[in-house]
Simulated scan of single mutants.
Amino acid sequence: MTRVLIADDHDLLRDVLRSYLEAEGGFSVVTAADLPSALELVAGEEGFDLLLLDYAMPGMNGFDGLAKAIAAVPGTPVALMSGMAPVGVAEKVLACGAAGFLPKTLPARSVVNAIRFMAAGETYMPLDMIRQQPDQGSPDIGLSPREREVLSRLCEGLANKEIARDLGLREPTIKLHVKTICRKLGARNRTHAAMLARERALC
């Protein structure tokens, strides 16, 4: 069972997110209305797999609250969500050591997948936000270390099940990585992604 703490000052959003996750199955959801309440819950309960915090809720003060939450739960993924995307948010969120950023405009299915992804220890950032980051001249800009590991195995022709076994991950997690890699590279499918990667000397 994946335990998620969702902290947001909008009652409806909290209830909707909890309903989506519980309907999906495999999730146990606890909610809070502000950062102090969330930190109290964390201090009083063990074993959260992910903390999902609203960027603008009471007590957050933007990235200061994010840093405070990360310090309060060493080793537990902490992510931000917001109805807006502050300038440079992707870079700042990752620099703080967060698990990712969820725009509240994401479709429900994407939200569920992203939460599952981050709770598994992976990093999530919407593709359009990654594209907004300045290009540092690296041919693999936007690919996380884990995505590079998956891509290298795609280039070797391994199936998702083989990659999952090789990296010690679940097959659905590998599928999400492959989908993200294809979108970042502009590939039609996994075979096309491997071909583009070879052309760009990524593997």
Rank of each mutant, 00 (worst) to 15 (best):
M60E: 03
P58Q: 06
H10M: 12
I181N: 02
L102T: 08
K184M: 15
D15Q: 12
F48E: 04
V112I: 15
L106T: 05
A164T: 00
F101E: 04
L127G: 01
A72K: 05
L167F: 13
Q133S: 09
R170Q: 13
L51H: 00
A119E: 06
R116N: 05
L53E: 03
G137S: 02
C155Q: 02
R148P: 00
D11V: 14
V89C: 15
L169M: 15
E122D: 07
E22A: 04
P58D: 08
D140V: 11
R198Y: 03
T105P: 02
V73G: 08
V16M: 12
A7Y: 06
G157K: 06
N61I: 04
R109D: 14
R188K: 10
L39G: 01
I130N: 00
S144P: 00
A95L: 14
R200Q: 11
Y124M: 09
S82C: 10
R146E: 09
A67Q: 11
E45L: 15
R14F: 14
L12P: 01
T31Y: 06
L12Y: 11
R200G: 01
C203E: 01
D34M: 07
S19D: 12
T105Q: 13
P139E: 09
K184R: 14
A95D: 14
A194L: 09
V150K: 01
T191S: 13
P107K: 08
A114D: 08
G186V: 13
A95N: 06
E147P: 05
S110A: 15
L41V: 05
A23V: 11
L52R: 01
T173S: 13
G47F: 10
G168Q: 09
A99P: 09
A43D: 12
G47Y: 08
A120K: 01
L12W: 12
E22M: 09
A7D: 04
L80H: 01
M60T: 02
A119P: 07
G121E: 07
M84D: 06
I141R: 10
N160Y: 09
P86V: 11
P134Q: 08
V93W: 03
L167H: 04
M129Y: 14
A187W: 10
A67V: 12
S138K: 13
S138Y: 14
I6S: 02
A32C: 05
L17C: 13
A71R: 07
A114N: 08
D135M: 12
G47A: 14
R188L: 14
T31V: 15
A33Y: 07
L102P: 11
D64E: 15
I70T: 04
R165L: 15
P126D: 06
V87Y: 13
V42F: 04
A95F: 10
G59H: 07
I181G: 05
E40K: 06
R170H: 11
A197N: 04
H192N: 11
L169H: 04
M1Q: 06
L5M: 10
F48T: 01
P77S: 04
R148E: 02
G186I: 14
L13K: 00
L202F: 15
P107T: 02
R183T: 04
M81C: 14
T191Q: 13
